[in-house]
Write a protein that binds this DNA or RNA. Structure first.
Lengths: 270, 270
DNA sequence: AACATATGCCTCTTACAACGGACATACGCA
DNA sequence: TGCGTATGTCCGTTGTAAGAGGCATATGTT
């Protein structure tokens, strides 16, 4: 799904270089493999000469890298370092590692921290459970919001109209091919928000159940979720325990979300 | 050091928006804390109106984020995700995790993977050693190349002239205040390259010794280094063992560097 | 109160980046 | 051999984004 990246609204308009550059980065990220400049230009339906020039600039800056002698390029090392810097300054990411560990150990199930990335749901961090066959998913991969339990919580601060505008209509088509009624979805959003919890049998497969609890900022807005992914039989058997553990962790994590801009002093220490 | 970011060479020239945008990202990364648009404009000595506009575009794209109500911005979540995508596709990062673990366990010392980031040295990954008081450093922080053992290896593919052009003159001023003769440095580079190894007592402090071994790509070029950071007495006592272990790991890792573009299939697995 | 400084927002001009399209090369296939 | 497609490069045009500067507000200092 979503093979083409949105480029611009007004067709006659000339696109800004910056935006085109971001489109290139997004395309490579979604594609998950290197590509040649020409391929990229075609995929984005952007002028070739422009794409070539932008890629040259991005290569120069280290945001893209040449991956071979055939001209293929992919996301560059600089992005990795910028991502590190983001992470270092973002309390939530740091804090939650411990919570994910705790959840995974206590429940033996896979625990995840989930967030919005643009108008998609995505797993920001994951800790696999302590079982011989573990359930895992792709960290950082964009997924339609309505496919996920966390999705119900992550958009709960929006009005009905905002939600409908925010989520592309195509995203209400579930992996099964069936279409989820947006009104049903919104009802679930409201209910999840009120309950401070949402759980359902995962739509993307037929053997897991997902538990999601909101991590809220000062204003009470759900900025992320903590999730447990459990096989359905275990989920049924331990439902109340899992729910309680998850709610506890999420509430705890929420309280830690006050201080954002501490200078992150990770200096040399013997 | 290096408070001002390089903007452009020809003074009268109008800077490209893309480059200015990258300067903004770099500035925030180096600064390691949120800043207001005006501060950024002043710090980069870039026109305010331009910086405001660029920041708006970067916010829109998610590469920057508003961190509070006072207009402060910092690197955004999107960069984190782009960094994840980079990492997922970059064999070296994946492969080396195991090697760092192995090194740290076998030697009980801190092990690092180091690379160039632009014209600086930086620690890309780290695994702390198994000691009560561990030595660590900042992952992702740019450090002048001549300050580090790895630096000798990382520039060894360049000619003398290229090295002198590549490393800012200011970077030859060591943390002690003394200036390292560039010719001395280059001699060490050549020697390190020939030996496939470099070790010295760290210039940035007075209690550690650093061991560095090159990770080479197909062409024999040093694309990264594996390092051990040890207290000086331990380093002396176990010098040969540490060196052998490190060289072994680095050679091994080098051989794994052949296949770059495997599709990184981290799908759902029960 | 007068002043200096930091900040955000706006307008106008023009240098130049985005673009379209021509050209050249390489490859696979009939 | 000829044809279609994929690819990279170059150049002239023009729409527009980068830049300079002015206005307004807020805060702190004398």
């Amino acid at each position: 799904m979503q093979t083409k990246i949105k480029t611009n609204e007004t067709p006659g308009r000339r696109a800004r270089g910056l935006d085109r550059a971001f489109d290139i980065l997004d395309y490579l990220r979604e594609r998950k493999s290197p590509a040649r400049p020409n391929q990229i230009a075609v995929a984005l339906s952007a002028p070739r000469s422009t794409v070539y020039e932008l890629i040259a600039a991005l290569l120069e800056a280290g945001l893209l890298e040449q991956t071979d002698a055939e001209g293929n390029v992919f996301l560059g090392r600089k992005l990795y370092f910028l991502g590190l810097a983001y992470e270092a300054n973002f309390d939530l990411t740091r804090e939650c590692r411990a919570y994910l560990d705790r959840l995974a150990i206590e429940t033996r199930e896979t625990a995840q921290l989930c967030m919005l990335d643009g108008n998609k749901y995505t797993v920001a961090m994951m800790r696999e459970g302590a079982r011989p066959f573990r359930i895992s998913s792709n960290v950082g991969e964009p997924v339609p919001v309505p496919w996920t339990a966390s999705g119900r919580l992550l958009v709960s601060h929006m009005t009905d109209e905002e939600i409908l505008e925010f989520i592309p209509a195509a995203d209400f088509v579930l992996p099964t091919g069936a279409t989820l009624n947006p009104r049903t979805f919104i009802a679930e959003v409201r209910q999840a928000d009120k309950a401070g919890f949402f759980s359902f049998e995962t739509l993307a497969d037929n053997f897991t159940r997902c538990f999601a609890a909101p991590v809220r900022d000062h204003g009470g807005r759900c900025v992320a979720t903590l999730c447990l992914i459990a096989p359905r039989n275990d989920a049924q058997q331990y439902f109340e325990r899992y729910k309680a553990t998850l709610l506890d962790a999420a509430a705890d994590l929420s309280t830690k979300l006050t201080s954002r801009s501490l200078p992150s002093s990770r200096t040399i220490s013997l």
